[in-house]
């Protein structure tokens, strides 16, 4: 009996920190593939690259913890991207533009959460519809062209403070705040409860619909943040931006140890998961490995991660 418990503990520990385990293995691989991986230049570079998918993945973690999914984040990012670009081009101040676009992003998220509760449709279907709709709105809003010509108004996001890029700091703060919210607040407990068993939580008095709206709103806020960082990075607004980003975000959450069924996982794991995925790309490129071969490895690793999540949980 105690041996069995022991095994379960080892398994749970590995599951909990599988992002970290993956990263460690990757570091070993990097040691053979490319020494450039370990330079500080490259680490600033990696943090810049992880900021956008990482922020999206943090938002996605909330959604996945409730047992939901959001397929619309890529299109949502494109819409906020063109809004930010259009407002800056129009001459609106930086602060107002950011506040306004984050507000819109949060509202869109809340609206999606509300629809899921009101229609009782699966999140997969609702967010699939949102994915198509938001992409269409992004094209119409931008008049089907790219929006550029707002100089370097968002240049501040590309600078570094204390050795780290601003975008990296934003991801780190978002992760810590989200982690505290999930672990220390009643709201956080509700999120885990809904993901564990929605019906049981409803019967025991958890405000399921309100919590869901808040979760999708937080996810929307994360999309808004990511979109601002995206605009800063590309310095323009493109209605075709962010294609397929929802899958990167979901992959980061899963590799980070969250269960797609809901109720299990945390944002620190997601952070490591996102970092892991960006590092794979980075290591393989530095090592001169073919991009499409890299995609194959990524798929294999995600499959392994999900398999590990399911061990001992049937």
């Amino acid at each position: 009996m105690s041996r069995l418990l022991n095994r379960m503990n080892t398994l749970q520990t590995v599951q909990r920190y599988q992002g970290l385990v993956g990263l460690l293995l990757l570091f070993i691989a990097a040691f053979f593939l490319s020494k450039d991986f370990f330079t500080s230049d490259n680490w600033v570079n990696v943090l810049k690259q992880v900021a956008i998918p990482g922020t999206l993945a943090i938002g996605m973690t909330f959604v996945i913890l409730t047992g939901g999914i959001d397929l619309s984040v890529g299109s949502h990012l494109a819409l906020i991207n063109v809004i930010v670009a259009a407002w800056l081009k129009h001459g609106t101040g930086l602060g107002e533009t950011i506040a306004y676009s984050l507000f819109i992003a949060t509202t869109i998220g809340a609206f999606i959460g509300w629809i899921i509760g009101a229609t009782k449709l699966q999140p997969f279907i609702v967010t699939l519809a949102a994915m198509v709709t938001l992409r269409g709105i992004a094209y119409v809003y931008s008049n089907r062209t790219m929006i550029s010509g707002f100089e370097d108004k968002l240049g501040g996001f590309q600078q570094s403070y204390f050795q780290l890029p601003v975008s990296g700091w934003i991801l780190i703060f978002t992760t810590i705040l989200s982690g505290v919210l999930l672990a220390r607040s009643i709201f956080g407990r509700h999120v885990y409860a809904i993901g564990g068993n929605q019906e049981a939580s409803r019967l025991s008095g958890v405000p399921v619909n309100k919590t869901r709206i808040a979760v999708y709103a937080l996810n929307g806020l994360c999309v808004g943040l990511a979109a601002v960082l995206f605009t800063a990075r590309t310095n323009n607004g493109a209605p075709s931006a962010g294609l397929g980003y929802e899958l990167d975000a979901i992959a980061a959450v899963v590799v980070g140890g969250s269960s797609l069924v809901g109720g299990i996982g945390n944002v620190f794991g997601t952070f490591l998961g996102a970092l892991f995925i960006v590092c794979i790309n980075n290591v393989l490129q530095l090592g001169g490995v073919d991009t499409n071969i890299a995609q194959g490895w990524k798929g294999l690793i995600i499959l392994l991660a999900v398999y590990m999540q399911n061990l001992g949980r049937q």
Partner: peptide, 15 residues
């Protein structure tokens, strides 16, 4: 774990 390590180490050869 071994599979993962192999997968990552394998990248070297594939280049």
């Amino acid at each position: 774990g071994a599979g993962l390590a192999l997968a990552l180490a394998g990248c070297n050869g594939s280049s």
